Computed example of a mutant assay.
Amino acid sequence: MRTSRIAALAGFAGIAASALSFTGLGLGTAANAAEGTGRPGTYLLEGESFAQGGSKFEGIGVDQESGKFYVSEVTGGEIQRGSADQAQAEEWLAGDGTDGRYTARGITVDDEGRIYIAGGPNGTGNDRPDLWVYSPSGELLAALRVPDNDAFLNDVAIGPDGAAYFTNSNDPTIIRVAEGANGWEATEWADGSSLITRQEGFNLGGIVTSTDESAFVVAQGNTGQLWRFDIATGEVSEIDTDGANLRNADGLIRQGRDLVVIRNFDKQIVHLELNPSATSAELVSSTATDPNRIFTTGKLLDGRMLLVDSHFDEQTAQGPYEIVTARMPR
């Protein structure tokens, strides 16, 4: 197992200020210049404005050791790779059918640097893969179907056991992916249908572990609820969110007990303080984001949030295509 830089980066969290306004989040170049980090405030992605629908992006995964990040393109399934200290990202994996991938959604990276990609509706109604696993060098390790033929794999997080856990935006299930004695396997790990009702729109989406790693925190965007999936049992319960408005909750970012909920089309970032086991959360603030951007999700890298500007509000997405940085609200 590789040595992680997470502990070494923890000191950067002290630069974060309370997010009472969009400016207070410290987005963009000016904030980073003020901190003297020497790192770009935004990262440019390669895109194709001339292609049908343009380029629209959604997921992001980060490798804490190498400083690299990976971004998924909904329109085509390409994967781009960037570095914390370089302003321009580049296409890393081709799309348009490469490894059966025509669209891509959530991404995460494990401690070995392996990249897990959720396919959204890529495998719905056909025999294409629902998800992929790649080595840091870009070698395809697995392209898997999941048991549910109606799955829409949205986001993914690494659990305490080292396996990857994918949320399903159709049925309220979580899929576990790991390499076993017989190779890579995708199995249904938890079914929350006893408490979670499938509704029109996007159901389960963003996913992170709780502070004490006893549970997964999962967002249901169409209802504005957060759900707790117990890691030991898979049992589901609703998280008390202190009356916070979380409709259109998409990506989740957690640092310690601080949880950021990105409300994509509502153009809000909500800051909650979780209790360690994620049975409840206290509302701290709700902050308006840039009215000209639709942020879908984000990840922490070198003490900063990297937020994906999706261009989902454009019929044909026009550049520039960017990842925007911000301080973690505290």
Rank of each mutant, 00 (worst) to 15 (best):
G67F: 06
A104H: 04
F202E: 08
G11T: 15
G224R: 07
Q64T: 08
N248A: 14
K267H: 08
I269S: 06
D127R: 07
T108C: 06
E200K: 04
L204S: 11
V156H: 00
T124D: 13
L93W: 14
T187I: 15
G59D: 12
P40L: 01
L246N: 13
R293L: 12
I117P: 01
V109H: 02
G47W: 11
K267M: 05
R5G: 04
G192P: 10
R176F: 13
T3W: 02
A30I: 15
A186V: 13
I269T: 05
R228L: 03
V284F: 04
P160M: 06
F202Q: 10
L259D: 06
R145G: 09
Q315E: 09
G61I: 01
S169Y: 07
N245M: 14
D155F: 02
T223Q: 10
T211V: 10
G26T: 04
S135Q: 08
G82I: 05
G67C: 05
A281G: 04
S285W: 10
S310F: 04
T233K: 04
V71C: 07
P276E: 11
G106I: 08
D110Q: 11
D110C: 04
R114I: 01
G224K: 05
H311S: 15
I269F: 14
G234W: 08
A288N: 15
S72A: 14
G234T: 08
F57P: 06
E188D: 07
V71F: 05
G319C: 03
R5H: 09
G256T: 09
L300I: 15
L27K: 04
R228Q: 10
A13K: 13
G159E: 06
I294E: 08
E91N: 13
T197I: 13
E314N: 03
T42G: 00
A7G: 03
Q225L: 15
V109Y: 00
L274C: 05
R263I: 03
A19F: 01
D240E: 15
I294R: 07
L246Q: 02
K56V: 14
A142P: 08
A244R: 08
Q225F: 13
E273H: 12
Y70F: 15
T23I: 15
T325L: 01
G123N: 09
R257G: 06
N170R: 14
P121G: 03
T173S: 14
A142N: 12
T98W: 13
L204T: 13
A8E: 13
A143N: 14
P147Q: 06
E65F: 10
V208Q: 02
V156S: 03
T3H: 04
S210A: 15
V270K: 00
D191H: 00
D313E: 12
I207K: 02
S214D: 14
A142W: 02
Q88A: 12
R198Q: 14
G319S: 05
W184C: 12
S49C: 10
R101D: 03
G192T: 03
P121H: 03
S286P: 00
K299D: 09
L20Y: 02
I196Q: 04
E65S: 15
A232S: 07
